[in-house]
Design a protein around this nucleic acid. Structure first.
Lengths: 238, 238
DNA sequence: TGCGAAAACTATACGGCGTGAAGTTTCTGC
DNA sequence: GCAGAAACTTCACGCCGTATAGTTTTCGCA
């Protein structure tokens, strides 16, 4: 009995230290950008030696990967929650809610956005599996739900496109097709296009390229959503 | 006479060395990403000491700034050339040419794209003036020309939007308004939106986020252009 | 033509980085 | 109580940017 208790204690301490490392790393990223994530800085902040961290993460890239996983999951949670919270009966509102959640999360976590979608740290190479790709697929699945909501209105726009299922990643389709059995491949293309549109505007804004051209990125994004909803054939809300 | 000749010689040598530094830096960037741009690596490649480079660039950030200026100018030249080469009488073709030039340049110079639109090197802070912002405005001006070409067809979509001139950067307007005197503020918003759309798709592709979802980014981008031209009210080419 | 100055470059050094190897302390389970 | 594992430190290496001081090459002018 005491044995399992003490083993639990050690594991708990380990988990706490791991959490603290990640938390400190996120703080450093928030204050100094992804480039500020250094093992030595983290260790300094925690009163340890840099090498002590190697007991928790095999390499700095491993730590970054874990952070990306956490951050991407947080983004996926945010947009999923917004989608679920919006009334299902109004596709336009749901789309707007999703998009605003996406941009809102990015503006609230600009360094996280950079970590996910930009160059995180020089030389870092993202692994092909793990929580981050899963979260990316959750985001894409959410986008497809968005496209599915609009598809009855937008279908005619894709009458002469020729997308095949083989144009898309099997992993993504494995989640999407069971959820939306009636959706054609072109609807996935629409989802990716919408992703591109939103990502582009938010990305330009986060990286400061939009701020040098317009004073009202808010208004521009709002206009984007208005036009998006309209182009999907859903009547805009009054 | 000999004096001016020899002075010219020294200046020429200096210019050649400067050019070689930039060229080597671009090679390093192409092979190892923006993070591979290190003074020591450049010097090693050139058979010099790292400190010798300080005679040409005050700091590494200065070198990076110069590279960004060059690269951004090259992008602006590419899209401008494509625009000028396309027949003026067909707005749809011109828009497609511009967009394909944009994506083509990005795919041909992915590291350059990252250098311009991503985090170049950790801790680097871009200056507010110089050739790069100028090139950015050239790109935006080109985009506005694109929006202007489509405006007669697209105007009705913006009937109930409320953009003001004060929503946009004075520097940009200084170039845009004289060139297109009849264009309303909403057309600039349209230009920025188009920029966002194209940038988003290309950015996702360059950073590898699109490749994990679709096997045919080409097809997706082509579809984007088809829908873009259609949404602008220009009849798509058969 | 020769000399003082300026420009180009090297040598050395400092602190920060990721990381590997080896040693030390602390805790755990039998 | 003690073997062993886990946590952590110390030391080391090579990389980076960059500041300072010293050296060599080149130039302009008398």
């Amino acid at each position: 009995m005491a044995g399992t208790g003490t083993r639990g204690r050690r594991e708990r301490l380990r988990a706490e230290t791991t959490a603290e490392i990640k938390s400190v790393a996120l703080e450093l990223m928030a204050s100094g950008g992804p480039g500020a994530i250094t093992l030595r800085a983290i260790a300094r902040e925690m009163g340890m030696t840099a090498n002590a961290i190697y007991g928790y993460f095999a390499t700095r890239d491993d730590l970054v990967t874990t952070l990306i996983n956490d951050v991407y999951t947080s983004l996926a949670n945010a947009v999923d929650a917004a989608w679920d919270a919006a009334p299902a009966k109004d596709p336009a509102d749901r789309i707007r809610a999703w998009a605003h959640a996406f941009r809102g999360w990015a503006l609230a976590n600009p360094e996280g956005f950079r970590l996910i979608y930009g160059d995180p740290v020089p030389g870092y190479i993202a692994p092909e599996d793990g929580a981050a790709p899963d979260a990316a697929q959750r985001v894409c699945t959410g986008l497809t739900a968005l496209a599915a909501a609009a598809w009855p209105h937008a279908e005619h726009l894709y009458a002469d496109s020729d997308f095949q299922w083989s144009d898309f990643d099997a992993g993504l389709l494995g989640k999407v097709r069971p959820a939306f059995p009636d959706l054609p491949p072109a609807a996935v293309a629409l989802a990716l296009r919408i992703w591109g549109h939103l990502h582009g505007l938010v990305s330009l804004e986060i990286y400061g390229h939009l701020g040098t051209q317009t004073m009202s990125p808010d208004k521009l994004f709002h206009e984007e959503l208005t036009q998006l909803v309209r182009s999907l054939g859903i009547a805009p809300k009054a």
